Simulated scan of single mutants.
Amino acid sequence: MTTGGFALTGLSVRPSQVWGAVRLVPLVRDQPIAGLRLDRRVYEAGDPSIVDVGDGTVYRSYIPHAFVATWSQGTEPSAAFGTQLQERPATPRGAKAQTGARAIRRMARRTAPGRLRFLPLHLAMEGYLALHFGGPTTVWEEWTDTAVRHGLSPRVEEAYCGAQVRGLADALRAFEIHPGQCGVALYVADALAGVFVVPHPADYRALHTTLLEDMYGEVLFHYTTYVAGVPDYSAAIDADCVASFADLRREAARQSLDWAHFHDSAMADGLLHEGTYTYEHIYRMGEFTLSRMLPSFRLNEENHIGELISGPGGELAYCKTFRLSPTQAKRGYLLSRLHEHSWDLLATAQALGTEPSQLTHRIEAAGFTGLLRQDVVDRLARTGRRDDAPPGDGRSR
């Protein structure tokens, strides 16, 4: 694992296009990424899918399609495959057969030399769901036997399909795709919903409409209900500064630079500049690396999870991000703070500047009620602290 920031390396921003509350900001490359192409494999709609994460854990979700990354050795260009051979379904270990459910072998699976099939956004979401999944590292008395033996099982999160986001389908159909466009930053009511990047313009044209099948947070879904529209971008050229075509070109270039600076420094600031991310490397594909990222879980600020493929020079070849809701960010924040203090409620409460009884209330409000013993919670509510007891006398076992 590594830590660091996030940057749209190798991409430049073009002026946005607006449809109602939806704003799409094109991301353009001067040159496509050599040696990597991206295509998709479509699954039948309607039924949920069961995925074996690989450690005996079963992941169940609606998965409309997978992406297939194809890479070549060296710098020779790759061609995206229009069709791929279907895999024979396999039943995950420990999963019961269910009517109408598909079985997919792995989150990321190599299907042929130089070809990897992976589930877009689900790599990122699985990393968030598995955050400190094992539960208490030290068996303090506050935690139930279930929490100790099975950890945070199951973890469930909700998201909305892009087709349910009002105005998104019309925006994707009506908006212009720029020459060299390899990605897009999607805003709903000018809140960054996600970033989507691919290695080649032809890949983007083929995958442009898959934004309708992506997952989006609950808050962003409601934004389209409450916000009718956002202001469109319009260039303001000072006519007094234009006396020739060269002046006009200079003023147009200045407007483009001003817009790009405003986008990176203001609109996308929560993703690009305000957070530190932890990167987990999932798969090595020749010179390219598939990774997923988790935020530092800052309260009352933007928190994005995502997955990306980076090139040998650090350029961003592929990316998908998902904006967590405030509630999801609070869950990640609580789990991270508990993990930092070995799941000791007293030490965690002291670090957060609160009382153990208040911390237990926050844990319950986050949906983790079943992890705590009720008798200990009741005692903390009465005393405000853990009973003083010598080590080995009920505090841990």
Rank of each mutant, 00 (worst) to 15 (best):
T369A: 09
A101G: 01
R323T: 04
L271A: 02
L212Q: 11
E126D: 11
Q350K: 12
G275D: 13
F288S: 07
A7M: 09
Q31M: 11
P154C: 09
D258I: 07
A239G: 07
R250I: 01
C182W: 00
A381G: 12
S49C: 15
H122Q: 14
F262S: 11
R298A: 13
D39W: 08
M1C: 09
P77I: 08
R106Q: 10
S291M: 07
F221N: 09
Q73I: 13
A45P: 09
G114C: 08
A193I: 03
W140V: 01
Q98L: 14
F288K: 01
G384K: 10
E287L: 12
R205W: 04
Y277G: 02
A268M: 13
L27N: 04
G180H: 02
Q164A: 15
F245M: 12
D232K: 11
R292M: 08
V377D: 04
Y283S: 15
P32V: 06
G311K: 02
A163D: 09
A112S: 15
V219W: 07
S296P: 07
G270D: 15
E141G: 13
S357V: 05
A381H: 11
R254I: 12
V58F: 09
L27E: 03
S153F: 02
V148D: 04
M267Q: 08
E307R: 00
E142V: 11
L211H: 00
D190L: 02
S16M: 10
A389N: 06
Q31W: 03
A21E: 05
L335Q: 02
Y279W: 15
T354F: 02
D214N: 14
A329K: 01
F6I: 00
D269R: 15
H178W: 13
